[in-house]
Design a binder for these strands. Structure first.
Lengths: 280, 280
DNA sequence: AATTGTGAATACTTTCACAGCG
DNA sequence: CGCTGTGAAAGTATTCACAATT
């Protein structure tokens, strides 16, 4: 635990690289070992989704402008992002939707059917277990884990719920490399340690704690309370700082996307009773 | 929709400012109207959580180093972040936990009891509705909305479920300014338009679509599939690029936080059966 | 003596603007 | 021509290192 100091001269206060710490809070050398800038990687799934949509509506060629619009980014950024993957566009024409989609999916490892284990089957964990998007995106839920005797043995979508005590066996049997931590805060670190100790190298953490993991393990954190607090900050500023609050300063930057600003163009009201997102 | 072009000379391709588009995908002038850098705002809730923890364990003064460790960031970053709020530390000593906590909470508008409406009561929406952290963090869920007749009229935590058709009435009656969209993709834009048309200015979006909103409305997006895909990318690279894969390149940056790297220091195993995070 | 607050340096990201190509 | 791919410029964010302060 002191080689860091030895090697790094203990400047400010010997803090090693913050590494994977909080999800997108912003740290880490940006380019993992070689490749694509971190910020770009975070947008690739967005592009993929946009392409799937376009694909669905029969479009087979798309310009950077149109795709950027669908993804909610600027066209220059889209092109710069894609340029990190290779030259998959055709000058004067645009991108072939199917081809580009394939390339991005490949870059993200979508064809690899990553085995995922979900630990903690409270409301959130259950919501995740029911999430239909997993399979089509290259993930397979291979384990559902909870310590509650009332749940253990039951099945959810044909998958039996495993006792938390048997977590290690499950990991060994399934070879899961991605773990979802949807436990209460108190249990999160212990569960994480056990996951990491038995082959899991990527963790999606829903517990509102900062997880300690060995170097090389990736953690992304999703904290609902935190997201809301960030929104609250903006609301707060809105009332606090009435500098041009009411009227947007002219310039009419209007809308991010295609749809008109003020009110909706009467889209379809789908009566589906709100279950979790249902695929594209 | 052409004043933008008129004013901005139509360069690359007249894209207005990408504005609030995707949550942290990375755009937007960083400093909202005046103040604190966007990246800092995103970390303030983390600091707040860390302070609450320290507070709970009887600590009443903390140095930037210790707090940074608890928050999973570097000490310099912590100090820089806090410096945007004011000079709340004492040189040679550190920060008063209670005082700093209060200051950050104030900056985030935590005392203001923001009224929140949740639309869509599938697994995820229900998980959110059950989330105990809201109240203590300055939010009050004032509305639960779903179109399903089987749900309408039922109560959840003492709050009656409102029919989606009555959304506008609910917004008017409660004055909600923050909306959570937990509907299926197809309904998300329409719900958003209705929210925004009736006073909601901040939206937390769980549907995997890019929402179009008028300028001035803040959107944060949480997309589970996307988070996993980002993790998958790293897994993918891990196998793809075996350049020094096994052994982390020396330098032993080890752990992010306090806990020892390899395995856990035998933390408490709390048998609580995995429900959603349970407060601090 | 310890620790904050902060300019200056570095690193990363986004945006511009245009050459190059189909 | 239209649109991509990309260097160069601009804008943000992070990290360093130290003077100021208790």
């Amino acid at each position: 635990m002191s080689s860091a100091e030895t090697l790094r001269e203990a400047r400010d206060d010997a803090h090693p690289t913050p590494a994977e710490a909080a999800a997108d809070v912003g740290a880490e050398p940006t380019t993992a070992t070689k490749g694509i800038p971190r910020a770009t990687v975070a947008r690739l799934p967005v592009y993929l989704r946009a392409l799937a949509q376009l694909s669905g509506s029969g479009t087979d060629t798309v310009s950077s402008g149109a795709l950027a619009e669908a993804a909610g980014v600027g066209p220059a950024q889209l092109r710069k992002d894609l340029s990190h993957l290779g030259s998959y566009g055709i000058r004067g024409v645009g991108y072939d939707v199917a081809y580009l989609r394939f390339q991005i999916a490949r870059e993200l490892g979508e064809a690899e059917e990553w085995p995922v284990v979900i630990v903690g089957l409270g409301n959130l964990g259950t919501a995740l277990a029911n999430y239909s998007g997993f399979r089509s995106r290259g993930f397979r839920v291979v384990g559902l884990v909870d310590p509650d005797p009332a749940l253990v043995g039951q099945t959810l979508h044909g998958l039996a719920i495993t006792d938390l005590r048997d977590l290690e066996d499950l990991l060994a049997a399934t070879g899961a490399v991605i773990g979802v931590v949807a436990t209460p805060s108190e249990a999160a670190q212990e569960v994480t340690d056990r996951l990491v100790g038995h082959g899991v190298t990527s963790i999606l953490n829903f517990a509102p704690v900062v997880l300690a993991v060995p170097d090389g393990v990736h953690v992304r954190k999703v904290d609902l309370g935190q997201e809301l607090q960030i929104l609250a900050y903006h609301e707060h500023r809105r009332v606090e700082e009435p500098a041009g609050t009411r009227d947007d300063p002219v310039v009419a930057p209007g809308i991010i996307d295609g749809a008109p600003a003020g009110l909706p163009p009467a889209p379809v009201l789908v009566p589906t009773h709100g279950h979790l997102e249902g695929e594209d």
